[in-house]
Design a protein around this nucleic acid. Structure first.
Lengths: 356, 356
DNA sequence: CTGTATTGTGTCATCGTTGTCACACCCGTC
DNA sequence: GACGGGTGTGACAACGATGACACAATACAG
C-alpha cells in the first residue's frame, strides 16, 4: 500500500541516469553510444550512474528514435538440427560480441506468403540487417522482399546471384571432388552418389564435384548410380536401398550429407553388409552425427559455425561494398571408407563414354 | 534525385493507414487490437487500408506506449541440438499462432553474470513473459532475476519449486521405472545405469526411477553399476567403457539419454560386442538420433515439442494462477534390447540388501 | 420527454531514446 | 582583440504506437 512503486521493480530509464549523474539525457545518450565529445570526468560520472541503477537502454525506444535498432535477424529453413544449431551458434557469438540482439527466425521458403512474412518481420522489428542461411539464400520471394525494403543482408552459402550481396561460403564442388577422389584413390570405380535436397544449390555443386572427379579419373558417369535424396535420414535409407538393389551395386556410396549417410549405414547394417569391408560410405558436413554413428563417418568438415560467424561479422561491420569470403573445408577420414572388396568387378573406364 | 523518398521503400505507419481510411490513428489502433466498439463499416475501411499499405504495427512503438510488447523470450542452455530444436519448434508454433514474436536466447547457467544478463534482456526488449527450459528452470540466479522484475514466466520440465510458477513436465521417474522394468522383464538382473548431467533435475529423477524399479523387482542396487554422465556422446563413451570393464559387466545398459546411449553403442561396436545379443542398450528422449544409430534404440519417447508448445500456451493464455500439466511418455521398443545371453550369471537378489 | 447507460470516435499526452540545432567555452591566429 | 574551428553540453522535437479522457450519438428505461 505504499504510494510509490515498489523498489527494484522499476526499469531505470535514461532520465534516471541523467538525474543521478547531474547531466542531460542527451549526454547520457552520448556516453552509451560512445560519442567523441564527452569529457572523461562526465563519462565516468555517467557510467557510475548507469552501473548503480543497472540501466540498459530500451531497444524499442532506440529503434523508434534512432536510425539503428541494434537487432539483426537470422532466417533459416533447414531441417538438420545439427546444422541449424551450429549456424545459430556462430551468429550468436558474433552478435553478442557486438552487443547486438539476434532474432532467430524460422521461415518456410515453400510458403507462398513468405515474402509478406519477411516484410512483416522487418516492419515489426526494425531490424538493421538480415542474415540468410541456405536455402533461404536463394528464395526469390525473400530476396525480392529484402531488396524492396532496402535492408542490408548477407548470405551464408548462397547458390546464386553472387553479385547481389556479400556472402560467405565454401567450395562445395571442390569438397565433393575431394571426397570422390579419396574414394577413387582407395580403388573404387563404382561409386554411388546420393543427391541433396533439390532446393539447395549446394546439392548441384556437390553432384558436379562428384562428376568432375570421376571425369578427371577417366571413370564413366553412370546415371543409375546417382539417386535423389532430401538431406534427411529417411531419404538416405530409400536411396541406399535403391543403390544396393542394383544388379551391379556400388562398392562405395557418397551421400551429400551426414544424415543421409547414416541412412545408408542403417540399411547396410540391416542387410548384414559390413562397413567398410563390403561397402564404403562417405558423408558430408561433419556434424556431430558423423562421430556418433557406427562406424564413424568419413566426411567433409564444413566450417558451419565459422561460416555463420564470418557472415554475421560482415553484416555487423557494415562496410559498404560486396564482399565474398571462401572458407576452407577438410576431408575427414574415419572408419567408414576402405578399399573395395578384392573380388569386385572393376569397370573398364576406357571403353565407356561420359554421358552428359 | 527525386525530392521525396523512394516509393515502396517506406514502412507504412499507423498515421498513413488512418489518413487513407479517413479515421483517427486511435481508431486504427482499436481495429488492430480488436477493440469492441468499432462499427463494422469503419473496421472494414481500416482493414482495407491496412492491407493496401501492407501495414504492420511496430513492436517498438507498442512496447513503448502500451503495456504489452507482443514478445516473449525462450531461455535455454542445453547442449543437445535435437532437444533444443524441438523445444524451439514447439514454442514457435504456439507463438506464431498467437501473433507473438519469440526471442530464442541461449544463456549460460554457469555464468556468474547470468542474472544480470537476464535482467538486461528484460530491460532491453520489454518482453511480456519468459519461457524457461531445463536446466535454466532451476538456476537460482535466473529465477531470482525474474521474480525481482515481476515478469511472468513458465517452465518446461522444472525440477524444483513447483509452487513458484506454472510448468509442464513429464514423469521422469515413472518413465525410467518403465524402462528399467522393461529390461527386468526381458530377464536382465545386472543392469548398468548412466546418470545424466548433474545440473539437470531430470537426472536425479531418472536415477530414482531406475532404483525404484529394481527395488520393486527385488533386485539389489549395486553402486558399481551406476556411473556418471553428462548427456553427451563422449560421456556416454566414457561411462560405457567403465561399465564394460567391470569384472562382472552388466547385461544391459540404460543411459539417461539417447546421446549417451549412442556412446554405449559405439564402444560396443568397437569391442565387437553384438547389440542386442550380447548387450542390451536403452536410451531416453527418443530424439531423431534414436532412429539414426544402429541398432535403432529402445528408448522413452519424451514429448518435447508438446511440452514446449503447452508451456508457451500457458504463458500466452496469461491466466492467473499456477498451473501444472503432466504430459505422458511412451516406451518405444526398437532393436537395441533383448533378453540377456543365456550363459549369463544371474545375481541372487534375495541375498543382497539395497544400499542407500 | 428527460436522464442514464452503452456505443463509437477523436484529442492529447506519453513511453525512452536519438537527431538536429543552438550555444558556450577554449584555443590559436592574424 | 576579433575571428574561426574544434570541444563539450543542453533544449526540444521527433519516432509510432497506446492509455486516459472527453464527447457525441444512439438506445432504453422511467
Amino acid at each position: 500500500m505504499s504510494p510509490g512503486p515498489r523498489p527494484g521493480n522499476e526499469r531505470a530509464s535514461i532520465r534516471a541516469v541523467a538525474a543521478r549523474a547531474g547531466v542531460s539525457v542527451k549526454t547520457v545518450s552520448r556516453v552509451i553510444n560512445n560519442h567523441r565529445y564527452v569529457t572523461a570526468d562526465t563519462r565516468a560520472r555517467v557510467e557510475a550512474a548507469i552501473k548503480a541503477l543497472g540501466f540498459r537502454p530500451s531497444i524499442a525506444a532506440r529503434s523508434l528514435a534512432g536510425t539503428r535498432s541494434g537487432q539483426v535477424a537470422l532466417l533459416y529453413d533447414n531441417h538438420s538440427p545439427y546444422y541449424i544449431h551450429q549456424i545459430q551458434e556462430g551468429c550468436w557469438a558474433r552478435a553478442q560480441a557486438g552487443d547486438i540482439r539476434l532474432l532467430a527466425q524460422p521461415v518456410d521458403v515453400a510458403d507462398p506468403q513468405v515474402g509478406e512474412k519477411v516484410r512483416g518481420l522487418i516492419a515489426e522489428t526494425h531490424v538493421d540487417g538480415i542474415i540468410l542461411s541456405s536455402p533461404v539464400t536463394d528464395c526469390p520471394k525473400v530476396l525480392a522482399a529484402l531488396e524492396e525494403q532496402g535492408i542490408a543482408f548477407v548470405r551464408i552459402s548462397p547458390g546464386t546471384n553472387h553479385a547481389l550481396t556479400s556472402s560467405v561460403f565454401m567450395d562445395d564442388t571442390q569438397a565433393a571432388d575431394d571426397m570422390t577422389t579419396h574414394l577413387i584413390n582407395l580403388g573404387h570405380r563404382h561409386i554411388g552418389f546420393i543427391i541433396g535436397h533439390p532446393g539447395h544449390m549446394a546439392s548441384d555443386q556437390r553432384l558436379f564435384g562428384y562428376r568432375r572427379a570421376l571425369d578427371r579419373a577417366g571413370i564413366a558417369y553412370e546415371p543409375a548410380l546417382v539417386v535423389p535424396g532430401a538431406f534427411d535420414f529417411d531419404s538416405g535409407v530409400a536411396a541406399a536401398r535403391a543403390l544396393l538393389d542394383l544388379a551391379e551395386p556400388p562398392t562405395a556410396i557418397f551421400a551429400s550429407n551426414d544424415d543421409m549417410a547414416a541412412g545408408v549405414l542403417a540399411v547396410a547394417h540391416r542387410r548384414g553388409i559390413t562397413i567398410p569391408d563390403d561397402l564404403s560410405v562417405a558423408g558430408f558436413d561433419d556434424t556431430t552425427l558423423a562421430r556418433v554413428v557406427w562406424p564413424p563417418l568419413t566426411t567433409i568438415r564444413q566450417p558451419v559455425r565459422e561460416l555463420a560467424f564470418t557472415t554475421a561479422d560482415i553484416l555487423l561491420r557494415g562496410e559498404d561494398g560486396v564482399e565474398h569470403q571462401r572458407l576452407g573445408h577438410d576431408l575427414i577420414i574415419r572408419d567408414s571408407t576402405a578399399p573395395p572388396p578384392s573380388g569386385t568387378k572393376v569397370a573398364k573406364p576406357a571403353t565407356r563414354t561420359i554421358t552428359t
